[in-house]
């Protein structure tokens, strides 16, 4: 087995553990490359089936092409798709102008919390990777969130030999991280190998492209000529710029992501 085979086998193993051991399970699908790879891996794990719903937490500020791609893909694949927005906060006028961390907290973190409770999920599959940023590098594969969706990051239980945390009090839930040990290049090399469909916002037009997808006001493009998956791989093999450099919420504060994620952010 080569490296991608091993990553695929491990992710499939994790998805199957989650499906068997957690009660009500859903997968967060952000339309981006990572969660789209995760969707593909779910199809592999369950032999063409997706035995749980896919959830998009829609801030309503996403890049418009993402929404069009989401709806088309969901229809094409026959996904059971839940689109959830924090209507209350939006009605109260919350948005990027309220401040980035405030906006992320309301439209992403709180929306996710409301959704988790409304659908009573025991497990949420999330496509975070260790190489994305510091607090994610410390994550467990099965990571518990308490009844307030908080992550007790300073006191994580042991996780060894693929014996994941499947015992937890009612009302808590588990964030399942099948892509934890993948890195950005692995994701692209896998997309290339599998000849997987992916949203075209990642491909350069007029000398720029998105490297990471999020909300339109807070997600910047990078200068790039990479217009194909193969060209993106070549570009990433050379870059020394961090993947999330274009994501404004990460740059707000030295520990911004840790604070967001402690409160329940993905």
């Amino acid at each position: 087995m080569n490296h991608l085979d091993m990553l695929e086998a491990q992710s499939v193993f994790i998805l199957r553990e989650a499906y068997k051991k957690l009660g009500k399970l859903g997968m967060l699908w952000s339309i981006g490359k990572d969660s789209t790879v995760m969707l593909w891996l779910a199809k592999k794990a369950f032999f063409g089936h997706c035995p749980f719903p896919f959830i998009h937490v829609d801030t309503t500020y996403k890049i418009p092409e993402m929404i069009a791609y989401r709806d088309k893909t969901a229809a094409d694949l026959g996904l059971d798709l839940i689109v959830y927005s924090n209507r209350e906060a939006l009605a109260a006028g919350l948005g990027p102008a309220s401040g980035r961390l405030v906006c992320c907290q309301a439209l992403k973190t709180e929306a996710l919390q409301q959704m988790t409770r409304q659908y009573a999920f025991d497990g949420l599959i999330v496509g975070v990777r260790r190489d994305e940023e510091g607090s994610r590098s410390k994550e467990r594969v099965f990571s518990e969130r308490n009844a307030q969706d908080q992550w007790d990051y300073a006191n994580q239980p042991p996780e060894l030999w693929d014996q994941f945390k499947t015992d937890f009090p009612k009302g808590h839930h588990i964030r399942v991280h099948p892509l934890l040990q993948w890195n950005e290049l692995d994701v692209w090399r896998y997309i290339e190998r599998e000849n997987m469909p992916i949203i075209d916002l990642y491909f350069a037009r007029d000398g720029e492209r998105y490297r990471s997808l999020g909300c339109a006001p807070c997600t910047g493009k990078i200068a790039s000529k990479a217009a194909t998956v193969a060209e993106i791989i070549v570009e990433l093999e050379k870059t020394s710029v961090a993947e999330r450099a274009g994501r404004a919420q990460d740059q707000e504060d030295s520990y911004a992501m840790q604070k967001l994620r402690k409160a329940g952010y993905m």
């Binding site: 239980p157 042991p158 996780e159 030999w161 014996q163 945390k165 015992d167 937890f168 009090p169």
Partner: peptide
């Protein structure tokens, strides 16, 4: 592994 009270 041995599990007690939710944790390994």
């Amino acid at each position: 592994v041995l599990v007690d009270d939710y944790n390994v």
